Amino acid sequence: MGTCTVETDANISSGLESNTTGITAFSMPGWQLALWAAAYLVLVLVAVTGNATVIWIILAHQRMRTVTNYFIVNLALADLCMAAFNAVFNFVYASHNIWYFGRAFCYFQNLFPVTVMFVSIYSMTAIAADRYIAIVHPFQPRLSAPGTRAVIAGIWLVALALAFPQCFYSTIIMDQGATKCVVAWPKDNGGKVLLWYHLAVIALIYFLPLSVMFFAYSVIGFTLWRRGVPGYHAHGANSQYLQAKKKEDIYCHKFIQQVYLALFWLAMSSTMYNPIIYCCLNRRFRSGFRIAFRCCPWVTPTAEDKMELTHTPSLSRRVNRCHTKETLFISGDVAPSEATSGQAGGPPDGVPTES
């Protein structure tokens, strides 16, 4: 949310740590506030529970620990943090257009949620690149575990670097008696700092990732169509909205609060879609969700669900890349020594397979 009037530097002082309360032009009736609160509560609960479950399914089961799934863990962690730290506090801020959380949390709010948004985008880009290598160049070596961790660490470092200016220029101001958390960009040199920052964000957060994902998934689609291989379910990129606080006359209209809350809910709802997609389209994640929510009376996990995540010695899958058939051979129970000697045709214990 923004302000209706342009404030001077005299409004910024160290004495603004105390939060201003009361009624503002953006106060809404109780029933409206309750409806919006319920909508955001559902969003946060679904996003946090779903993404936490995805993280547990992958990290708690050896068979799920693949390169792609480690990037999915990174994406799920970013979406979980986005829902928990961005959606909740921005809803409270937008509901009255008053900042209640102090100067220190103003810095945090302009650093961490922006960072995890960037992490989410680059995680989807890394997944696209990994799928491209696995499908288009299947005989090239895949990323090792240390290499995967290095890429994930690099994603977080780049995201922190891109988000840091937002935090550095964050401050608390007073606007018509209300406390506000804003990003006060320097106005010297014709606002060139803000201009160059926005250009860098547009290039590194939008054009570069979208170009990589478009190229990777286009080539993947063409390759699978040409080979006639059973399709891999590629992970689609959900659009992310980068919110910016601007001081324009439009903020003086009361309806803009409802528009902001609706658009922000739609933007934040992207954090809860991925777990639902995984559950609907991937049988192993579906089995993991049934096991995770087995305490619910309407959920009944089966023995096959547990086998999907843990049972690998007696399961052998051979995919013929020259045909559109996938044959599944399930051998009988064998001793561990026989399984590792290759009689079952499957990988030895402890070797993860692709999900």
Rank of each mutant, 00 (worst) to 15 (best):
T302C: 09
F85E: 05
T310R: 08
V54E: 10
P209K: 10
A104D: 14
Q343P: 04
V219C: 12
T68A: 14
A203N: 04
N282E: 02
F89Y: 12
A161D: 09
G30T: 13
I202M: 12
M117H: 06
M64K: 08
V67M: 10
D305R: 02
M307T: 06
L199T: 08
N74R: 06
T66L: 14
H61D: 09
P313C: 00
I277W: 09
L45H: 00
A234H: 06
Y107E: 04
I133V: 15
Y169I: 10
S95K: 03
Y197R: 07
M82F: 07
I256T: 11
S211K: 08
Y100K: 02
Y122A: 07
K187P: 05
Y278P: 02
S95Y: 00
G30D: 13
W99Y: 09
N90C: 01
V259C: 12
K247L: 00
R131N: 15
Y197C: 07
V212P: 05
A78H: 11
A104M: 05
W99G: 04
A83P: 05
T353K: 05
F329M: 09
G22L: 12
H198W: 11
W225Q: 13
D130Y: 03
V259Y: 15
L41I: 02
F215P: 10
Y132E: 05
M268V: 00
N74G: 11
Y100S: 04
L75N: 09
L43A: 08
Y122L: 15
P301E: 05
N97E: 02
G288K: 01
I152Y: 03
V116E: 06
P313F: 00
L59N: 10
W99K: 03
P138S: 11
T327G: 04
Y251G: 06
Q109T: 09
F71W: 10
I276E: 05
A344H: 03
V46F: 11
T49H: 03
I135F: 01
D175N: 15
L41S: 13
C280V: 07
G147C: 07
T324N: 15
A303T: 03
K180M: 11
N110A: 04
A104W: 13
Y232S: 08
R283L: 05
M28R: 07
G350V: 03
F214I: 09
Q343G: 00
R284D: 08
S27C: 01
Y278G: 02
A344K: 02
E17I: 00
P301K: 07
P297W: 10
T66Q: 13
V6P: 06
C322V: 07
F26I: 01
I205G: 15
A126G: 07
A84Y: 10
A94Y: 03
V6T: 13
G190M: 11
T49I: 12
Y278H: 08
M272A: 12
K180H: 11
A47H: 07
K254R: 11
I330C: 07
G102C: 03
F168I: 05
Y278W: 06
L263A: 05
F71Y: 14
W156G: 02
S314F: 08
W225Y: 10
N320E: 13
V201F: 00
N19G: 05
N51M: 09
M1L: 09
S270T: 15
F289I: 00
I55D: 08
V351G: 01
P297M: 01
Y273R: 15
N90E: 14
I23Y: 15
F101I: 01
V151Y: 01
F26P: 01
A34C: 00
F214R: 13
